[in-house]
Design a protein around this nucleic acid. Structure first.
Lengths: 198, 198
DNA sequence: TGGTGTGAATTAATTCACAGCT
DNA sequence: AGCTGTGAATTAATTCACACCA
């Protein structure tokens, strides 16, 4: 779905108003019926004989995914990666506002990063309640990921993005997404290695 | 596979020498036979009645994936994200060495970022040959992704990581991996929205 | 006429269950 | 005795093919 949004937004930028599943499929490199199934799953967004209206489709998908609003996020772990994410303004553009930065290192607490004061991780619950935070972002080293996660879960957070290279345990009602771009590097390395062998 | 490496490296750090598919499955949150199938696909890494030796398994998987060596990479697009990646030393640790930084903006060319001189994208072929680069990383804005891609393909690169939010067209023998962490943000938003509705 | 939405057919992925080593 | 490797059974995902509607 995220891929479709991406492609549709680029189509919109290029001034396209209508798109067929056939064409959309070609750019996404998938089967046309795949696209129709995916889109029909959330509702009847298309017009028979015409295709999909790009602008309407973007709006519909975003609504269906629940990304047609602002999601307030807390970032835990103000290291290299954490700082990079805090400074990445694309997040705000996409509706994900990082409104709290947390770390357990006393030397970092109080520091201002990208306009946010770094707060002690222990105060997560307090801040989550105060600011109405719904999503947690973990950017700690792997060995501290579980602790960061526990703070987030205790604070009542139900959605977590884990950038740390470690698995974490959460209750059933908490959703975790693992973000690891080395996965993609490994995939490329593997495929290139394969291709070289033939 | 990348997940297994991640988990195994953490197990190793914790001093575990042997692991069963059952235990590994629990931490990865998958079925034990899934793990056995995946691992057996590349070779017989396990020992019946015992399990898998952690250190050996890491080595074997890395070998099978082709990540037991250094991969030289070129980064195209020295913007926000590009700079963040150039400064991220984890890449070097994992064997992915960014040895060239490219951009088409004359104001950026010549600038030194993280010890690398930014070079004009047009000189990619020359530099790829000179430095023995095998992997390309695209971190341009979406509208310039295809152009960056074309330079990489012309230079003979067979593996590309595309961080730009745009699809790109490549010949059949070139492998592209799309990296987009908004995908994960959308997934969390969607799942939390679903959970809130019930 | 042209392109969606969707049941049916096909293909792929996952899980089960157990033979076979150590 | 215990845990892997793997064919068989099951389940899920993808693709086909066409009815239906603008």
């Amino acid at each position: 779905m995220a891929v479709y949004i991406q492609v549709l937004e680029n189509l919109q930028r290029d001034g396209k108003n209508v798109i067929s599943s056939e064409l959309l499929a070609r750019t996404c490199d998938v089967n046309p019926s795949q696209i129709r199934k995916d889109l029909a799953y959330f509702g009847e967004f298309g017009v028979r004989g015409v295709g999909y209206y790009v602008q309407d489709l973007i709006t519909s998908i975003k609504q269906a995914l629940g990304v047609d609003r602002v999601w307030k996020c807390a970032l835990v772990g103000v290291g290299n990666l954490g700082r990079a994410l805090l400074n990445h303004r694309e997040f705000r553009l996409r509706g994900f506002h990082i409104v709290g930065a947390f770390d357990c290192d006393p030397f970092k607490i109080g520091e201002i990063v990208s306009g946010l004061e770094v707060v002690c991780s222990r105060r997560l619950k307090e801040k989550v309640d105060e600011l109405g935070i719904e999503v947690g972002i973990i950017t700690t080293p792997p060995e501290r990921a579980q602790r960061a996660c526990n703070y987030l879960v205790d604070a009542g957070i139900k959605g977590i993005l884990n950038f740390a290279p470690a698995r974490i345990e959460v209750p059933d009602d908490v959703n975790v997404e693992y973000v690891d771009f080395f996965h993609h590097f490994y995939a490329v390395a593997f495929n290139v290695t394969l291709a070289l062998q033939d």
